[in-house]
């Protein structure tokens, strides 16, 4: 069973002469419970795919399915109970005037939960924040703590699928490790399906089982993480990307 199916997806911005094709003819499928990576450089369209799935970008064509059900132009509340997203920059994804309590409380109320108080405490515990953080405002939190709140918000409706848009690229490496471990644990505990977007092949290698390499809006190659680690790639672009990711080698 596929959690996500994408076929011939095209996404563009603007109209007429200003039309900018961000994603061209992309197809991939993610199995339930799998962790799938989308890798590419900036502007390759990887984040745009996530935004198209969640309905944040209205201009797309092709076919997108969640758990076998095709997506239309609008998204239902039921959709948001199934699919949630964690954004790249935790400094931009939390409302500066809303406390942690407001952020989580609002998400829970929107999804029709009654026992909001208990659930907020549960969510905070799940993402490794104590109850002490409940009434803090974003400016009183560090980057890692903010990202934990953002993850808690995404978990609030108890989704099956989590879309992760570079969730650690704005964080220090030691904090990145904490967040990646947290995401690994959450997936194991809740049986989540992940789609993770990143420019960092090592992060994708750590988090995912399969990945697709993107360049200029197209998927160049799909491969397993084992293949990636072994540098078994047929595409020159993937090879080049892998080589530069392995680190800088000095000219002698």
């Amino acid at each position: 069973m596929n959690a996500i199916g994408v076929e011939n997806l095209n996404v563009w911005f603007g109209k007429g002469r200003d039309r900018n094709q961000a994603v061209s003819d992309v197809s991939f499928a993610v199995r339930t419970g799998e962790s799938f990576g989308l890798v590419g450089e900036s502007g390759s369209g990887k984040s745009t795919i996530l935004r198209a799935i969640t309905g944040l970008v209205p201009s797309w064509s092709g076919r997108m399915e969640i758990a076998g059900i095709a997506l239309g132009k609008a998204r239902s509340r039921q959709f948001y109970k199934t699919v949630q997203m964690v954004f790249q920059d935790p400094y931009a994804s939390l409302h500066p005037r809303h406390s942690v309590d407001q952020v989580l409380g609002e998400a829970l109320k929107l999804h029709g939960f009654r026992d909001v108080d208990q659930r907020i405490e549960r969510l905070l515990k799940d993402v490794g924040l104590g109850p002490a953080f409940r009434f803090r405002y974003p400016h009183q939190l560090s980057g890692g703590q903010r990202q934990r709140v953002a993850i808690a918000r995404a978990l609030a409706p108890e989704p099956d699928i989590l879309l992760l848009d570079e969730p650690t690229s704005a964080l220090d490496v030691s904090v990145q490790a904490e967040i990646l471990n947290l995401l690994t644990d959450l997936r194991a505990e809740n049986g989540l399906t992940y789609v993770m977007v990143s420019h960092d092949l090592a992060v994708i290698g750590h988090m995912c089982e399969r990945l697709a390499v993107m360049q200029a809006g197209r998927i160049v190659e799909e491969m397993t993480v084992e293949d990636m680690r072994a540098l078994r790639s047929t595409e020159p672009y993937t090879k080049q990307l892998l080589e530069s990711s392995l680190g800088y080698t000095r000219e002698t």
Binding site: V173, S174, Q176, A177, N181, D200, G205, R229
Partner: peptide, 20 residues
Amino acid sequence: RGLLNSLPRLDAPRRRLEVL
């Protein structure tokens, strides 16, 4: 050491990353 160990590595997969 903590910083080095907290990095995910392509050539040396680990189940969990070390937390500083």
